[in-house]
Design a protein around this nucleic acid. Sequence first.
DNA 1: AGATAATGTCATCTC
DNA 2: GAGAGATGACATTAT
Length: 465
Amino acid sequence: MLREKSEAVDHSSQQEETEEGESAQAKPRQQSKKEENKIEGASTWEAETTEAGNEPSTLPEHTLEGISVEDIPPFLSSVCESVNSSAQNINLSQAISHDVNLHEAMLLCPNNTFRRDPSARYAEAQEPSLQLNSHTNPEQATPAMSLPPVDNQMKNLTSQDLLYDLDSNIFDGINLMSLATGFSPLEVSQLFEEPDSGLSLNSSYNSTSLTNSNSYCIYNGTVGYNNDLQSLCHDLGAVGGCYPEPHKHCHMDHRTIVGFHGSLECQQVFHDHTYHLQSGVPEPTSESFTWSGKSQKISGCLDNPDRNLSRDEQRAKALHIPFSVDEIVRMPVDSFNSMLSRHYLTDLQVSLIRDIRRRGKNKVAAQNCRKRKLDIILNLEDDICNLRAKKEALKNEKTQRNKAIGIMRQKLHDLYQDVFNRLRDDQGRPVNPSHYALQYSHDGTFLIVPKEMVSQKGSPKERRN
DNA sequence: AGATAATGTCATCTC
DNA sequence: GAGAGATGACATTAT
Protein backbone atom coordinates (compact mmCIF):
# COMPACT_ATOMS: atom_id res chain seq x y z
CA MET A 1 0.00 0.00 0.00
CA LEU A 2 2.82 2.27 0.91
CA ARG A 3 4.52 1.49 -2.31
CA GLU A 4 1.31 1.91 -4.19
CA LYS A 5 0.86 5.29 -2.68
CA SER A 6 4.27 6.57 -3.56
CA GLU A 7 4.00 5.03 -6.99
CA ALA A 8 0.69 6.72 -7.45
CA VAL A 9 2.22 10.01 -6.56
CA ASP A 10 5.13 9.40 -8.86
CA HIS A 11 2.89 8.28 -11.62
CA SER A 12 0.72 11.29 -11.27
CA SER A 13 3.64 13.60 -11.38
CA GLN A 14 4.87 11.80 -14.45
CA GLN A 15 1.52 12.26 -16.01
CA GLU A 16 1.72 15.90 -15.30
CA GLU A 17 5.03 16.02 -17.00
CA THR A 18 3.93 14.15 -20.07
CA GLU A 19 0.38 15.22 -20.55
CA GLU A 20 0.72 18.74 -19.43
CA GLY A 21 3.97 19.72 -20.91
CA GLU A 22 3.22 23.37 -20.80
CA SER A 23 1.82 23.39 -17.35
CA ALA A 24 4.68 21.25 -16.24
CA GLN A 25 7.01 23.87 -17.47
CA ALA A 26 4.91 26.50 -15.92
CA LYS A 27 5.11 24.83 -12.55
CA PRO A 28 8.72 23.94 -12.07
CA ARG A 29 8.69 25.12 -8.52
CA GLN A 30 5.82 22.89 -7.64
CA GLN A 31 7.44 19.82 -9.03
CA SER A 32 10.82 20.51 -7.65
CA LYS A 33 9.18 21.00 -4.33
CA LYS A 34 7.58 17.60 -4.61
CA GLU A 35 10.92 16.05 -5.35
CA GLU A 36 12.41 17.90 -2.48
CA ASN A 37 9.79 16.39 -0.30
CA LYS A 38 10.69 12.94 -1.48
CA ILE A 39 14.36 13.49 -0.87
CA GLU A 40 13.71 15.09 2.42
CA GLY A 41 11.52 12.22 3.39
CA ALA A 42 14.18 9.72 2.45
CA SER A 43 16.89 11.42 4.38
CA THR A 44 14.65 11.83 7.32
CA TRP A 45 13.79 8.20 7.33
CA GLU A 46 17.37 7.11 6.96
CA ALA A 47 18.47 9.42 9.69
CA GLU A 48 15.79 8.02 11.88
CA THR A 49 16.67 4.43 11.17
CA THR A 50 20.36 4.87 11.74
CA GLU A 51 19.65 6.71 14.89
CA ALA A 52 17.45 3.99 16.20
CA GLY A 53 19.64 1.07 15.23
CA ASN A 54 23.21 -0.05 15.74
CA GLU A 55 24.54 1.29 12.48
CA PRO A 56 23.72 -1.83 10.55
CA SER A 57 24.54 -0.36 7.22
CA THR A 58 28.19 -0.03 8.08
CA LEU A 59 28.64 -3.57 9.24
CA PRO A 60 28.84 -5.54 6.03
CA GLU A 61 31.18 -3.22 4.22
CA HIS A 62 33.67 -2.68 6.92
CA THR A 63 35.80 -4.87 9.06
CA LEU A 64 34.50 -6.44 12.16
CA GLU A 65 37.14 -6.46 14.75
CA GLY A 66 39.69 -6.03 12.05
CA ILE A 67 38.19 -8.56 9.68
CA SER A 68 36.27 -7.54 6.61
CA VAL A 69 33.17 -9.40 5.65
CA GLU A 70 34.94 -10.83 2.70
CA ASP A 71 37.55 -12.09 5.05
CA ILE A 72 35.35 -14.03 7.39
CA PRO A 73 34.64 -17.69 6.94
CA PRO A 74 32.11 -18.45 4.19
CA PHE A 75 29.40 -19.73 6.49
CA LEU A 76 29.54 -16.58 8.57
CA SER A 77 29.77 -14.46 5.53
CA SER A 78 26.68 -15.99 4.07
CA VAL A 79 24.84 -15.44 7.32
CA CYS A 80 25.85 -11.82 7.43
CA GLU A 81 24.98 -11.31 3.80
CA SER A 82 21.61 -12.83 4.26
CA VAL A 83 20.95 -10.51 7.16
CA ASN A 84 22.21 -7.60 5.16
CA SER A 85 20.38 -8.41 1.98
CA SER A 86 17.13 -8.92 3.73
CA ALA A 87 17.58 -5.58 5.34
CA GLN A 88 18.18 -4.06 1.96
CA ASN A 89 15.16 -5.73 0.50
CA ILE A 90 13.00 -3.76 2.84
CA ASN A 91 13.98 -0.78 0.78
CA LEU A 92 13.45 1.66 3.51
CA SER A 93 13.56 4.56 1.16
CA GLN A 94 10.27 3.38 -0.21
CA ALA A 95 8.78 3.44 3.20
CA ILE A 96 9.08 7.15 3.42
CA SER A 97 5.96 8.74 4.58
CA HIS A 98 5.51 11.50 2.10
CA ASP A 99 4.21 14.75 3.26
CA VAL A 100 1.18 14.73 1.00
CA ASN A 101 -0.91 17.82 1.32
CA LEU A 102 -4.63 17.77 0.69
CA HIS A 103 -4.46 19.82 -2.42
CA GLU A 104 -1.95 17.51 -4.01
CA ALA A 105 -3.94 14.53 -2.93
CA MET A 106 -7.02 15.92 -4.57
CA LEU A 107 -5.16 16.74 -7.71
CA LEU A 108 -2.92 13.76 -7.99
CA CYS A 109 -5.19 11.03 -6.78
CA PRO A 110 -8.48 11.63 -8.45
CA ASN A 111 -9.27 7.97 -8.18
CA ASN A 112 -8.97 8.26 -4.51
CA THR A 113 -12.07 10.23 -4.43
CA PHE A 114 -14.27 7.26 -4.60
CA ARG A 115 -12.10 4.80 -2.81
CA ARG A 116 -14.16 4.79 0.31
CA ASP A 117 -17.23 2.81 -0.44
CA PRO A 118 -17.83 3.96 -3.99
CA SER A 119 -21.46 3.02 -4.07
CA ALA A 120 -22.23 4.92 -0.96
CA ARG A 121 -20.19 7.76 -2.20
CA TYR A 122 -22.00 7.79 -5.45
CA ALA A 123 -25.25 7.79 -3.62
CA GLU A 124 -24.02 10.61 -1.51
CA ALA A 125 -22.89 12.57 -4.48
CA GLN A 126 -26.22 12.07 -6.07
CA GLU A 127 -28.09 13.02 -3.00
CA PRO A 128 -28.66 16.62 -3.87
CA SER A 129 -29.42 15.64 -7.38
CA LEU A 130 -31.88 13.13 -6.16
CA GLN A 131 -33.61 15.79 -4.31
CA LEU A 132 -33.59 18.11 -7.17
CA ASN A 133 -34.07 15.64 -9.93
CA SER A 134 -36.88 13.84 -8.36
CA HIS A 135 -39.11 15.33 -10.94
CA THR A 136 -37.02 15.02 -13.98
CA ASN A 137 -35.87 11.48 -14.40
CA PRO A 138 -37.84 10.19 -17.35
CA GLU A 139 -36.67 6.63 -16.95
CA GLN A 140 -38.67 6.05 -13.90
CA ALA A 141 -41.98 6.81 -15.37
CA THR A 142 -44.67 4.59 -14.07
CA PRO A 143 -47.91 3.71 -15.69
CA ALA A 144 -50.61 6.25 -15.42
CA MET A 145 -52.80 6.24 -12.41
CA SER A 146 -50.66 3.82 -10.50
CA LEU A 147 -50.37 5.55 -7.24
CA PRO A 148 -47.65 3.95 -5.18
CA PRO A 149 -48.24 3.62 -1.47
CA VAL A 150 -46.14 6.38 -0.01
CA ASP A 151 -42.74 7.49 1.18
CA ASN A 152 -40.30 5.01 -0.31
CA GLN A 153 -41.96 4.85 -3.61
CA MET A 154 -42.50 8.53 -3.49
CA LYS A 155 -38.79 9.09 -3.44
CA ASN A 156 -38.47 7.25 -6.68
CA LEU A 157 -41.14 9.19 -8.38
CA THR A 158 -40.17 11.53 -11.11
CA SER A 159 -41.91 14.53 -12.37
CA GLN A 160 -43.24 12.50 -15.18
CA ASP A 161 -44.36 9.89 -12.75
CA LEU A 162 -46.15 12.54 -10.94
CA LEU A 163 -47.56 13.91 -14.08
CA TYR A 164 -48.60 10.58 -15.42
CA ASP A 165 -50.09 9.73 -12.15
CA LEU A 166 -51.60 13.05 -11.68
CA ASP A 167 -55.17 13.13 -11.09
CA SER A 168 -56.72 15.05 -13.89
CA ASN A 169 -58.38 17.18 -11.29
CA ILE A 170 -55.28 19.21 -11.08
CA PHE A 171 -55.16 20.02 -14.71
CA ASP A 172 -58.74 20.87 -14.54
CA GLY A 173 -57.69 23.39 -12.01
CA ILE A 174 -55.09 24.57 -14.42
CA ASN A 175 -57.68 24.94 -17.09
CA LEU A 176 -59.81 27.00 -14.86
CA MET A 177 -56.94 29.17 -13.84
CA SER A 178 -55.73 29.49 -17.35
CA LEU A 179 -59.08 30.67 -18.41
CA ALA A 180 -59.03 33.15 -15.67
CA THR A 181 -55.57 34.42 -16.44
CA GLY A 182 -55.55 34.38 -20.15
CA PHE A 183 -53.03 31.57 -20.46
CA SER A 184 -54.04 28.64 -22.53
CA PRO A 185 -54.02 25.21 -20.96
CA LEU A 186 -51.70 24.19 -23.73
CA GLU A 187 -49.16 26.72 -22.62
CA VAL A 188 -49.42 25.52 -19.13
CA SER A 189 -49.08 21.92 -20.06
CA GLN A 190 -46.16 22.77 -22.31
CA LEU A 191 -44.30 23.82 -19.29
CA PHE A 192 -44.17 20.20 -18.40
CA GLU A 193 -43.37 19.17 -21.92
CA GLU A 194 -45.99 16.56 -21.64
CA PRO A 195 -47.47 15.51 -24.94
CA ASP A 196 -50.56 14.33 -23.23
CA SER A 197 -51.16 15.62 -19.83
CA GLY A 198 -54.34 13.71 -19.43
CA LEU A 199 -56.43 16.75 -18.88
CA SER A 200 -59.88 16.00 -17.75
CA LEU A 201 -62.73 18.34 -17.44
CA ASN A 202 -64.38 16.05 -15.03
CA SER A 203 -61.95 16.65 -12.33
CA SER A 204 -62.63 18.69 -9.37
CA TYR A 205 -60.19 21.18 -8.08
CA ASN A 206 -61.13 20.70 -4.52
CA SER A 207 -59.68 17.26 -4.29
CA THR A 208 -56.35 18.87 -3.74
CA SER A 209 -54.85 20.59 -0.85
CA LEU A 210 -55.23 23.89 -2.53
CA THR A 211 -58.76 24.00 -1.53
CA ASN A 212 -57.87 23.59 2.05
CA SER A 213 -57.69 26.90 3.63
CA ASN A 214 -54.93 27.45 6.14
CA SER A 215 -52.77 24.85 4.48
CA TYR A 216 -49.23 24.97 3.20
CA CYS A 217 -48.98 25.44 -0.44
CA ILE A 218 -46.28 25.98 -2.94
CA TYR A 219 -45.87 29.32 -4.48
CA ASN A 220 -43.24 29.78 -7.10
CA GLY A 221 -41.86 26.52 -6.02
CA THR A 222 -41.58 27.32 -2.41
CA VAL A 223 -43.29 26.15 0.63
CA GLY A 224 -45.45 28.86 1.88
CA TYR A 225 -48.49 29.42 3.86
CA ASN A 226 -51.68 30.62 2.34
CA ASN A 227 -54.82 31.39 4.07
CA ASP A 228 -56.76 30.89 0.98
CA LEU A 229 -56.48 29.86 -2.57
CA GLN A 230 -57.17 33.44 -3.52
CA SER A 231 -53.76 34.40 -2.32
CA LEU A 232 -52.34 32.38 -5.14
CA CYS A 233 -53.89 34.55 -7.71
CA HIS A 234 -53.13 37.99 -6.46
CA ASP A 235 -50.51 38.66 -9.08
CA LEU A 236 -52.64 38.07 -12.08
CA GLY A 237 -51.78 39.98 -15.16
CA ALA A 238 -48.23 40.75 -14.26
CA VAL A 239 -45.51 41.18 -16.82
CA GLY A 240 -44.41 37.89 -18.22
CA GLY A 241 -47.80 36.40 -17.91
CA CYS A 242 -47.28 35.82 -14.29
CA TYR A 243 -49.83 34.06 -12.31
CA PRO A 244 -49.48 31.70 -9.48
CA GLU A 245 -47.97 28.86 -11.41
CA PRO A 246 -50.58 26.24 -11.68
CA HIS A 247 -48.02 23.61 -12.49
CA LYS A 248 -46.34 24.14 -9.21
CA HIS A 249 -49.57 23.62 -7.52
CA CYS A 250 -49.81 20.46 -9.44
CA HIS A 251 -46.62 19.24 -7.87
CA MET A 252 -47.85 19.94 -4.50
CA ASP A 253 -51.26 18.67 -5.20
CA HIS A 254 -49.99 15.44 -6.45
CA ARG A 255 -47.81 14.93 -3.50
CA THR A 256 -50.67 15.68 -1.35
CA ILE A 257 -52.68 13.13 -3.18
CA VAL A 258 -50.02 10.51 -3.00
CA GLY A 259 -48.63 10.87 0.41
CA PHE A 260 -50.67 13.19 2.47
CA HIS A 261 -54.27 12.38 2.45
CA GLY A 262 -54.72 13.58 5.92
CA SER A 263 -53.95 16.81 7.59
CA LEU A 264 -51.70 19.02 5.57
CA GLU A 265 -50.56 21.40 8.17
CA CYS A 266 -46.86 21.20 8.88
CA GLN A 267 -46.42 18.16 6.75
CA GLN A 268 -43.20 17.46 5.01
CA VAL A 269 -43.24 18.65 1.47
CA PHE A 270 -40.87 16.87 -0.83
CA HIS A 271 -39.25 19.86 -2.38
CA ASP A 272 -35.72 20.81 -1.84
CA HIS A 273 -36.05 24.45 -1.15
CA THR A 274 -33.03 25.03 0.90
CA TYR A 275 -32.11 28.31 -0.62
CA HIS A 276 -30.55 30.94 1.41
CA LEU A 277 -32.85 33.07 3.39
CA GLN A 278 -32.52 36.55 4.53
CA SER A 279 -31.18 36.94 7.94
CA GLY A 280 -33.44 35.71 10.61
CA VAL A 281 -35.71 33.98 8.20
CA PRO A 282 -36.29 30.33 8.88
CA GLU A 283 -35.69 27.98 6.02
CA PRO A 284 -38.69 26.25 4.62
CA THR A 285 -36.85 23.02 4.09
CA SER A 286 -38.48 19.76 4.68
CA GLU A 287 -36.32 19.44 7.74
CA SER A 288 -37.92 22.51 9.10
CA PHE A 289 -41.08 20.60 9.33
CA THR A 290 -39.77 17.30 10.51
CA TRP A 291 -36.88 17.93 12.81
CA SER A 292 -37.67 18.11 16.42
CA GLY A 293 -37.33 21.43 18.05
CA LYS A 294 -38.14 23.33 14.93
CA SER A 295 -41.70 24.02 15.64
CA GLN A 296 -40.83 27.60 16.27
CA LYS A 297 -39.85 27.90 12.67
CA ILE A 298 -43.15 26.53 11.65
CA SER A 299 -45.03 29.00 13.71
CA GLY A 300 -42.80 31.68 12.27
CA CYS A 301 -43.74 30.49 8.83
CA LEU A 302 -47.34 30.67 9.64
CA ASP A 303 -47.07 34.29 10.52
CA ASN A 304 -45.32 35.51 7.42
CA PRO A 305 -45.66 33.61 4.21
CA ASP A 306 -43.15 35.64 2.24
CA ARG A 307 -40.51 35.18 4.83
CA ASN A 308 -40.44 31.54 3.90
CA LEU A 309 -39.14 32.39 0.50
CA SER A 310 -35.51 32.25 -0.35
CA ARG A 311 -33.87 35.30 -1.76
CA ASP A 312 -34.20 34.05 -5.26
CA GLU A 313 -37.75 33.08 -4.67
CA GLN A 314 -38.45 36.51 -3.32
CA ARG A 315 -36.73 38.10 -6.27
CA ALA A 316 -38.62 35.86 -8.62
CA LYS A 317 -41.83 36.78 -6.96
CA ALA A 318 -40.98 40.45 -7.03
CA LEU A 319 -40.31 40.30 -10.75
CA HIS A 320 -43.31 38.09 -11.29
CA ILE A 321 -41.31 35.28 -12.77
CA PRO A 322 -43.85 32.74 -13.96
CA PHE A 323 -41.72 29.75 -13.05
CA SER A 324 -40.61 28.26 -9.83
CA VAL A 325 -37.02 28.44 -8.72
CA ASP A 326 -37.06 24.71 -8.53
CA GLU A 327 -38.07 24.37 -12.15
CA ILE A 328 -35.67 27.01 -13.33
CA VAL A 329 -32.82 25.14 -11.77
CA ARG A 330 -33.77 21.62 -12.67
CA MET A 331 -34.96 22.08 -16.19
CA PRO A 332 -32.70 20.78 -18.98
CA VAL A 333 -31.10 23.53 -20.95
CA ASP A 334 -33.18 22.92 -24.04
CA SER A 335 -36.41 23.01 -22.12
CA PHE A 336 -35.14 25.99 -20.27
CA ASN A 337 -34.41 27.93 -23.41
CA SER A 338 -37.64 26.99 -25.06
CA MET A 339 -39.45 27.95 -21.92
CA LEU A 340 -37.84 31.35 -22.01
CA SER A 341 -38.66 31.79 -25.64
CA ARG A 342 -42.26 30.75 -25.19
CA HIS A 343 -42.91 33.44 -22.66
CA TYR A 344 -42.68 37.12 -23.03
CA LEU A 345 -40.16 38.11 -20.44
CA THR A 346 -38.39 41.33 -19.82
CA ASP A 347 -34.63 41.46 -19.90
CA LEU A 348 -34.65 41.84 -16.18
CA GLN A 349 -36.73 38.75 -15.78
CA VAL A 350 -34.56 36.71 -18.11
CA SER A 351 -31.49 37.92 -16.33
CA LEU A 352 -32.92 36.97 -12.99
CA ILE A 353 -34.02 33.59 -14.23
CA ARG A 354 -30.56 32.86 -15.53
CA ASP A 355 -29.05 34.00 -12.28
CA ILE A 356 -31.42 31.80 -10.36
CA ARG A 357 -30.49 28.87 -12.53
CA ARG A 358 -26.80 29.51 -12.17
CA ARG A 359 -27.00 29.88 -8.42
CA GLY A 360 -29.14 26.81 -8.07
CA LYS A 361 -26.80 24.69 -10.12
CA ASN A 362 -23.83 26.02 -8.28
CA LYS A 363 -25.40 25.33 -4.95
CA VAL A 364 -25.75 21.68 -5.82
CA ALA A 365 -22.25 21.62 -7.23
CA ALA A 366 -20.90 23.12 -4.06
CA GLN A 367 -22.64 20.49 -2.00
CA ASN A 368 -21.16 17.74 -4.13
CA CYS A 369 -17.79 19.35 -4.04
CA ARG A 370 -17.82 19.48 -0.27
CA LYS A 371 -18.82 15.89 -0.02
CA ARG A 372 -15.99 14.90 -2.29
CA LYS A 373 -13.56 16.92 -0.30
CA LEU A 374 -14.74 15.31 2.88
CA ASP A 375 -14.26 11.90 1.32
CA ILE A 376 -10.75 12.79 0.30
CA ILE A 377 -9.94 13.96 3.79
CA LEU A 378 -11.33 10.79 5.30
CA ASN A 379 -9.36 8.66 2.86
CA LEU A 380 -6.20 10.54 3.63
CA GLU A 381 -6.77 10.01 7.30
CA ASP A 382 -7.12 6.32 6.58
CA ASP A 383 -3.89 6.42 4.67
CA ILE A 384 -2.16 8.11 7.56
CA CYS A 385 -3.34 5.39 9.93
CA ASN A 386 -2.19 2.66 7.59
CA LEU A 387 1.17 4.25 6.99
CA ARG A 388 1.74 4.74 10.68
CA ALA A 389 0.98 1.09 11.29
CA LYS A 390 3.31 0.10 8.50
CA LYS A 391 6.03 2.34 9.82
CA GLU A 392 5.67 0.79 13.25
CA ALA A 393 5.90 -2.70 11.78
CA LEU A 394 9.03 -1.75 9.86
CA LYS A 395 10.56 -0.32 12.99
CA ASN A 396 9.94 -3.54 14.85
CA GLU A 397 11.39 -5.54 11.99
CA LYS A 398 14.44 -3.38 11.98
CA THR A 399 14.92 -3.86 15.70
CA GLN A 400 14.75 -7.60 15.27
CA ARG A 401 17.29 -7.51 12.49
CA ASN A 402 19.63 -5.36 14.51
CA LYS A 403 19.42 -7.84 17.33
CA ALA A 404 20.26 -10.66 14.93
CA ILE A 405 23.21 -8.69 13.61
CA GLY A 406 24.44 -8.13 17.16
CA ILE A 407 24.28 -11.83 17.86
CA MET A 408 26.19 -12.57 14.66
CA ARG A 409 28.78 -10.03 15.54
CA GLN A 410 29.27 -11.59 18.96
CA LYS A 411 29.56 -15.05 17.46
CA LEU A 412 32.10 -13.83 14.96
CA HIS A 413 34.07 -12.18 17.69
CA ASP A 414 34.08 -15.38 19.78
CA LEU A 415 35.10 -17.43 16.78
CA TYR A 416 37.87 -15.02 15.98
CA GLN A 417 39.20 -15.22 19.49
CA ASP A 418 38.95 -18.97 19.45
CA VAL A 419 40.95 -19.22 16.24
CA PHE A 420 43.68 -16.92 17.48
CA ASN A 421 43.85 -18.74 20.80
CA ARG A 422 44.70 -21.89 18.90
CA LEU A 423 47.21 -20.29 16.56
CA ARG A 424 50.91 -20.38 17.35
CA ASP A 425 53.80 -18.74 15.55
CA ASP A 426 57.08 -20.42 14.62
CA GLN A 427 58.34 -20.15 18.14
CA GLY A 428 55.15 -21.62 19.52
CA ARG A 429 53.96 -18.32 20.88
CA PRO A 430 50.31 -17.28 20.57
CA VAL A 431 49.56 -14.90 17.72
CA ASN A 432 48.51 -11.44 18.74
CA PRO A 433 45.12 -10.74 17.10
CA SER A 434 45.80 -7.03 17.20
CA HIS A 435 48.75 -7.48 14.87
CA TYR A 436 47.41 -10.13 12.57
CA ALA A 437 44.22 -10.77 10.73
CA LEU A 438 42.72 -13.85 9.18
CA GLN A 439 42.33 -13.74 5.44
CA TYR A 440 40.45 -16.37 3.54
CA SER A 441 40.92 -17.08 -0.08
CA HIS A 442 38.27 -18.34 -2.46
CA ASP A 443 39.78 -21.80 -2.62
CA GLY A 444 39.03 -22.30 1.04
CA THR A 445 42.55 -21.80 2.38
CA PHE A 446 43.29 -19.08 4.86
CA LEU A 447 46.27 -17.03 5.74
CA ILE A 448 47.41 -15.15 8.76
CA VAL A 449 48.31 -11.76 7.43
CA PRO A 450 49.82 -8.87 9.27
CA LYS A 451 47.33 -6.10 9.59
CA GLU A 452 49.62 -3.64 7.83
CA MET A 453 49.31 -5.70 4.68
CA VAL A 454 45.57 -5.78 5.02
CA SER A 455 45.46 -2.04 5.33
CA GLN A 456 47.84 -1.69 2.36
CA LYS A 457 45.61 -3.78 0.20
CA GLY A 458 42.73 -1.68 1.39
CA SER A 459 39.22 -2.56 2.27
CA PRO A 460 37.18 -4.48 -0.24
CA LYS A 461 35.32 -1.30 -1.06
CA GLU A 462 38.50 0.57 -1.75
CA ARG A 463 39.80 -2.29 -3.86
CA ARG A 464 36.72 -2.16 -5.97
CA ASN A 465 37.26 1.52 -6.59
C1' DA B 1 -20.43 36.45 22.84
C1' DG B 2 -17.13 34.05 20.45
C1' DA B 3 -15.86 29.66 17.99
C1' DT B 4 -16.93 26.51 14.72
C1' DA B 5 -19.66 24.18 11.25
C1' DA B 6 -22.70 24.48 7.55
C1' DT B 7 -24.35 26.67 3.66
C1' DG B 8 -24.83 29.95 -0.17
C1' DT B 9 -22.65 32.76 -3.53
C1' DC B 10 -19.24 34.52 -6.70
C1' DA B 11 -15.23 34.19 -9.62
C1' DT B 12 -12.61 31.43 -12.24
C1' DC B 13 -11.16 27.50 -14.59
C1' DT B 14 -11.81 23.30 -17.32
C1' DC B 15 -14.30 20.25 -20.20
C1' DG C 1 -19.09 30.24 -27.64
C1' DA C 2 -22.43 28.56 -24.31
C1' DG C 3 -23.36 25.73 -20.66
C1' DA C 4 -22.30 22.75 -16.90
C1' DG C 5 -19.51 21.27 -13.38
C1' DA C 6 -15.61 21.82 -10.01
C1' DT C 7 -13.51 24.41 -6.60
C1' DG C 8 -11.27 28.18 -3.83
C1' DA C 9 -12.53 32.13 -1.36
C1' DC C 10 -15.54 34.79 1.10
C1' DA C 11 -19.97 35.98 3.49
C1' DT C 12 -23.72 34.65 6.06
C1' DT C 13 -26.27 31.76 9.05
C1' DA C 14 -26.80 28.05 12.37
C1' DT C 15 -25.25 25.56 16.28
